[in-house]
Each structure stands twice: as structure tokens, then as C-alpha cells.
């Protein structure tokens, strides 16, 4: 492959990974925007989501790489897998908020953030103890259609990942911009007390942020499985930290920022792996995290956290 073809190929790969990071980064940003809380349990909501996706596909009779579907059955299976995974993950996020974070709502300091780390490890260990430490094959019911673009290969899988991610992100964007509850979310992020005095029920806004963020993380978990053809109890931390970096890079609290930050991190990962060395990927990504935090803590696109007056 020529350098140009490699560049093209890694752009394709990077966009798919980036879409996954973007979906995951949105959960960090939605919750941070409203509660100023970094929710580390989000890492493993994503991981649990990928297992729920696996089990849903298996329940639908898709096991291993041997079952290939086309046409309507394929669309049906994918829709069902995404729907079940997203609803389950969303409810998991809501349960985490309700059980472990709401009682700490008015506690100052890092108690809530530390609790999210604890919840993250609980999820991690539940999956480890029930499913086991070995990675699981993730079935992929897509036909292996390949398109040649120059010297690069574009698989049907990538197109699916892009389309699904775009639809979900566009949906979220429209929800936040246009719906009544979405506007209440933005208002709460900008001035929680004023929003409350407009009659916004802040608990509902928080539940919505956790549900949507966690549902998107679930979709990200399914995409992880489709992309890497496996899942494991351990996938949450690396992907989660990279997505968190994406959220910070885009400006944590900023919804479009998280989307763009995610795509950038995906591209940096694939390009760094191709042109520097895969082993250095995390060094590069987390150096970006440190540099952004030191030199531009509001990220590329500015933060949408409450204005302190």
C-alpha cells in the first residue's frame, strides 16, 4: 500500500473508532454539563453494554461468525440488538444515579466522583465473576461486502457503524436543541438554580442525562463488538479513558465538542498506530489529555458548564 492508501485506510478505521469514542464521550459530557461530575462508572456501562449486545445477538440466533443475514432479517436483528442494548444500558445508568449518586447530590467534594469509581469496579467484577476472564467472540451477522476505494478497503461494517453513529448523534443533537426536555437540560447546565425557578424538575433532567448518555455508551459497546469481533470484561477502561480524553478535547460539557473530540481521538489512534507505533497510542492520546488540561482546560470548543456568578 502506498502512503496515501494507508492514510485513506486509517482514516476509514479512525472514523469508525472515533464514532465509538464519540458515542461514549457524549455520556461524560452530558452528565458533566449538568452535575459537574466525572462519571467513571460510564466506562463499565459501556462494557456491560457490549455484553448485553452479545447476549441479545445470541438470543436472536446469531452466534459465532457463521450466521450471515441480509435484507430485512439483518435490519431487524440490528435494530433489535441496538434497541435492547441501549434501553438496558440507559436503565443501568439511571439505576446507578438513583442508587449511588442521588443520595450524595448535596455532598460537597469528591465523594460522588469516587463513588462512580467504586460503581465502575463493581460492574467490572460482576462481569468478571459471572462471565469469566476470557474474551468472548462477538458475532457479526453482516455480509462481507467490501468496497475498494483507491488502495483502501471499506467494509459494510464501517458504513453501518458510521450510519448508526450519525443517526444517534443527530438524534441526540436535535433532542437537546429542540425538545422541551432538551432545552431544560441546556438551561440546567447553564444555570441550575434559574432553571429550577422556571419550574424545571432537575431530577428529571439528571435522569434524562444519565439515560441518554448510558444508552449511547451501550450503542458504543455494540459497535466495539462489531469492530473488534470480541468483547471482554476489561474493555471499559481503555476505551473509557480515551473517550473521556475526547470529551475533554472537545470541551467537556459541550455536546458537538464531544462528537468532534471522539472522531479526532479515533483518527489519532489509527494514524499513530500506523505511522508511529501501536504501542505508543496511549502515550500520544493521554499526552493530549494532559496538554489540553494544562493549556486549554475548556477544550477546543469551550465548555458548557454552569456560569458561576
Amino acid at each position: 500500500m502506498s502512503t496515501f492508501d494507508l492514510l485513506l485506510q486509517q482514516t476509514i478505521n479512525g472514523l469508525s473508532l472515533g464514532a465509538m469514542y464519540a458515542l461514549l464521550a457524549l455520556g461524560f459530557t452530558l452528565v458533566y454539563g449538568i452535575l459537574e461530575l466525572i462519571n467513571f462508572s460510564h466506562f463499565n456501562v459501556f462494557m456491560v453494554g457490549s455484553f448485553v449486545a452479545l447476549w441479545t445477538l445470541q438470543a436472536l440466533g446469531i452466534s459465532g461468525q457463521s450466521v450471515i443475514l441480509t435484507g430485512l432479517p439483518l435490519v431487524g436483528v440490528l435494530l433489535a440488538a441496538f434497541a435492547v442494548t441501549m434501553v438496558f444500558s440507559g436503565l443501568l445508568g439511571v439505576a446507578i444515579e438513583r442508587i449511588s449518586l442521588r443520595p450524595l447530590r448535596n455532598v460537597k467534594g469528591p465523594a460522588a466522583m469516587i463513588t462512580t469509581i467504586g460503581v465502575s469496579y463493581i460492574l467490572f467484577n460482576i462481569i468478571l465473576l459471572t462471565v469469566g476472564a476470557d474474551s468472548k467472540n462477538f458475532p457479526n451477522p453482516l455480509p462481507t461486502a467490501r468496497f475498494q476505494i483507491g488502495g483502501a478497503i471499506l467494509e459494510l461494517r464501517e458504513i453501518l457503524i458510521w450510519v448508526v453513529s450519525l443517526v444517534l448523534m443527530l438524534g441526540l443533537y436535535l433532542f437537546v436543541q429542540k425538545s422541551r426536555l432538551g432545552k431544560a437540560m441546556r438551561a440546567t447546565a447553564q444555570d441550575p438554580e434559574a432553571a429550577r425557578m422556571m419550574g424545571v424538575e432537575v431530577d428529571r433532567v439528571i435522569i434524562t442525562a444519565f439515560f441518554l448518555g448510558s444508552a449511547l455508551a451501550g450503542a458504543g459497546g455494540l459497535i466495539f463488538g462489531l469492530y473488534y469481533n470480541f468483547t471482554s470484561f476489561i474493555i471499559g477502561f481503555t476505551a473509557g479513558l480515551r473517550a473521556f480524553t475526547a470529551a475533554v478535547l472537545g470541551g467537556i460539557g459541550n455536546v458537538p465538542g464531544a462528537m468532534i473530540g471522539g472522531v479526532l481521538i479515533g483518527l489519532i489512534e489509527t494514524m499513530g498506530g500506523q505511522f508511529i507505533a501501536t504501542a505508543w497510542t496511549d502515550v500520544i492520546i493521554f499526552s493530549i489529555l494532559v496538554l489540553v488540561l494544562v493549556f486549554k482546560p475548556t477544550g477546543l470548543f469551550g465548555t458548557l458548564t454552569p456560569t458561576k456568578s
Partner: peptide
């Protein structure tokens, strides 16, 4: 608020990154 009490807050406290119209919409939330 539903029963008919509305505030004009100290220092205005508009939602600074929402449009004027969206701020008015929030008043009718």
C-alpha cells in the same frame, strides 16, 4: 411556578447561551 409565581432573578440570570426566544420558552416551561 405552576400555581402562578414567577421570578425575575437578581442579576437577570438569563440562560446565557440560549437564544432570547428560548429564554422566553423556558419561562413558559
Amino acid at each position: 411556578v405552576r400555581r402562578g409565581i414567577a421570578p425575575v432573578l437578581e442579576a437577570r440570570r438569563l440562560f446565557p447561551r440560549m437564544t432570547v426566544f428560548e429564554n422566553l420558552e423556558m419561562g413558559a416551561y
